[in-house]
Design a protein around this nucleic acid. Structure first.
Lengths: 193, 193
DNA sequence: AAACTAGTTGAACGTTCGTTCCACTAGTCG
DNA sequence: CGACTAGTGGAACGAACGTTCAACTAGTTT
């Protein structure tokens, strides 16, 4: 009261950027661990494999912990989608706008990172049923528009759609396409300027 | 034995094309009703909403009936994917290879038939986890290649991918795109010959 | 030090689930 | 007609589930 501008201990620690290995910090860590475990479950078994119990097993925490941080399964899936979408956006942010770079990104997504890509698309469709999640699901589209904003509108829409299509079709191919196979397709869709 | 080439009554009925409203015919009808109910459940609640019981409720049959025709849930989903893929192929078969026709087909898919399209893509991803289902999931791609076979290979691959992408992005849009909005994009991807 | 509170945990509730079983009905076949 | 068999459906099994709860531990604040 008398000292409204006073710096409390926790404020001081925060302003110094010290994470303070206390309750809050450990809580945040566990919250993140639960999200990461959820994503692994989705990669392995799909969205339908997600339950408070399966996630708790994967994260090696008691069931009541997952319920403590994410009261309902919906809360958990929603948080997982938002987090994975932001991670995906970061991953694509480092791709340069050349056909070979894009082709390599796509080949990695349906090859080495197949499980992860599959999880992304399951969450994608999950978002189709939850209007409040759609902005998060569209995030990487908006990111693309900032990178390839110089293209004609119609060409850009077709290009972005084709990227999604190439990914999803790569997921149901017997042998995932290679960067070499993808590059001519990408080149055709992405005029040099 | 003495009469190996003899025509049995049931053979005769079958060769005459008479369905015989007997056990087999009613069984086939119920089997189809169960599949149709399954697809409705997927449209409404997604693949994760499918259970022997939810399908039985939807089809208004006892639980043991769904288990009788499709011993496991996997059997049911597999049959549903194959059936819906063949239906989808039929639907697309009547689309003429012009930009406006294709644009209208896409707009219908993400508009009036949104639920059905959503179901198709959920099954699509389901197939990504079951190698034996992939040929069925790819059926409409192969159908496209017979319609648009005159295109250059790379252009064709990009075109097909873009169709998938336009559909899936239409599903997470706040307002599904109209045929008028889609046509310029389709035109650009589909050269007149 | 004392009050407070974020986080932890195991147990428990009622529900839904996949699947099996068995007694039963009614077409089919010889 | 008599044997056979495809289909029906109610009941039941154990398992897994979402969620709640209350007792507890240990950082945090005053």
């Amino acid at each position: 009261m008398a000292d409204a501008g006073r710096v409390t201990p926790v404020d001081a620690r925060r302003s110094r950027g010290v994470p303070a290995d206390g309750r809050r910090a450990r809580g945040d860590r566990r919250r993140r661990a639960i999200l990461a475990a959820t994503l692994r479950v989705i990669e392995r078994e799909g969205v339908s494999g997600v339950s408070h119990r399966s996630v708790a097993r994967e994260a090696d925490v008691p069931v009541s912990s997952t319920a403590y941080y994410y009261a309902t399964l919906d809360d958990l899936l929603i948080a997982c989608l938002k987090w994975s979408a932001s991670e995906m956006a970061v991953a694509f942010g480092s791709v340069s706008p050349t056909p070979s770079s894009v082709a390599r990104f796509l080949a990695d997504a349906v090859g080495p990172h197949r499980g992860r890509t599959l999880a992304e698309y399951e969450l994608y469709l999950f978002a189709a049923r939850r209007p409040e999640l759609r902005p998060a699901a569209r995030r990487w589209i908006t990111l693309l528009s900032s990178v390839f904003g110089t293209m004609q509108p119609a060409a850009f829409l077709g290009f972005v759609a084709a990227l999604d299509g190439l990914l999803i079709q790569g997921l149901i191919a017997d042998f995932p396409p290679t960067a070499e196979q993808l590059e001519p397709v990408v080149s055709l869709l992405m005029p040099p300027r």
